[in-house]
Design a binder for these strands. Structure first.
Length: 322
DNA sequence: TAGGAATGCGTAG
DNA sequence: TACGCCTTCCTAG
């Protein structure tokens, strides 16, 4: 159940421990047998994430595209390099070490550490329905429950990326990121659909899911029902910049913590207590943390949308185009 | 233990 | 808008 930050972390984990190696590619479950056979034995050249899509490029030019959907996850075994040095990250200290299992899909969870830091058996037997196993001599990555898992040629992969809106985590250059922000603002303000729906539209901006959607709109104090056209440029730009910030934090920490009012102790507590992490998400009926009004939940495009009816307002419409 | 919900999305109607 | 995909977790009974 990942949003963009998780997929970026997965891409980095694969980059650190599997890129540059010839991989054994199998489909223990059997549903990806043909694709696995096509990739088996090839060197993995590149691992990148765009929005919620993962792209793995192999030496032949074949690209494995994976989308985790609602409940996909990767389990990692063996030698793993810490992805970030974030304060709350699971692997913030120490050298690469052997792990029994690290699950990346929702909150990252680590399996029990083995005595002496050794896994009992390597490679481990697949657990459950493993669609794809990518294995080097030292590291195994098991993919379970994806909504998409397919081999594309380079043109097909490029087309898949082309269908996505900008993703701030793919851009390091300030000018490029600003230009991408202007593009997101343009796409957002081009339609009269509710901004709450537009933020979830991966063609407008890539990587936002239901949690980030609700939290970004609360942080902007913006009513999710506001038509995209009526979102002022300044507000839309602020949404992009806030998304870039939250995404970077999410990638560093491996979880979605959107509250900026937490003390360091509270933030540490939020690592294990999901109830502390959000302003409105999953808090229907509970008092708004700012004004005390009960948080509302309603369906928007078949997804649960959480908002504070008092704090989140429609912008005043003006005749002047801004 | 059964059933529903979940951080998603494509397709059919 | 409704449904299917395919997995895990939590809760009600």
């Amino acid at each position: 159940m990942p949003e963009g930050h998780t997929v970026h972390r997965i891409a980095r984990q694969l980059e650190l421990d599997l890129v540059g190696r010839a991989l054994r590619v199998t489909s223990p479950q059997g549903r990806f047998a043909a694709g696995a056979a096509r990739l088996d034995g090839q060197v993995l050249l590149e691992s990148t994430a765009v929005g919620k899509h993962l792209f793995l490029t192999f030496a032949s030019g074949d690209v494995l595209r994976v989308h985790l959907g609602l409940y996909g996850a990767w389990d990692f075994h063996g030698r793993l390099t810490p992805v970030t040095t974030g304060e709350l990250a699971w692997g913030s200290m120490g050298a690469p070490r052997l792990r029994r299992v690290l699950r990346m899909g929702e909150d990252e969870r680590e399996g029990p550490a083995d005595e002496g830091g050794l896994v009992a058996q390597f490679p481990p037997d697949p657990v459950g329905q493993v669609r794809v196993r990518l294995a080097s001599q030292e590291t195994v990555a098991d993919l379970r429950g994806p909504s998409a898992c397919e081999v594309l040629d380079p043109a097909g992969a490029a087309a898949a990326v082309e269908r996505l809106g900008p993703d701030p985590a793919t851009l390091t250059d300030d000018d490029e990121r600003a230009a991408a922000g202007r593009e997101m603002v343009r796409r957002l303000r081009a339609r009269s659909v509710a901004v709450g729906q537009l933020l979830m539209d991966q063609a407008v901006v890539a990587g936002i899911g239901n949690i980030y959607r609700a939290e970004l709109l609360f942080r902007a104090r913006l009513d999710p029902r506001t038509p995209g056209r009526q979102v002022p440029v300044r507000t839309a730009t602020a949404l992009w910049e806030d998304w870039a910030t939250l995404l970077a934090t999410g990638i560093a920490e491996g979880m979605i913590i959107t509250r900026d009012d937490l003390t360091p102790d509270e933030r540490r507590a939020a690592a294990t207590d999901t109830r502390l992490r959000h302003w409105v998400y999953h808090r229907a009926g509970e008092p708004c943390r700012v004004c005390g009004t009960p948080v509302l939940v309603e369906d928007m495009a078949a997804r649960k949308l959480y908002r504070c009816p008092t704090c989140q307002r429609r912008p005043r419409t003006t005749t002047r185009k801004t």
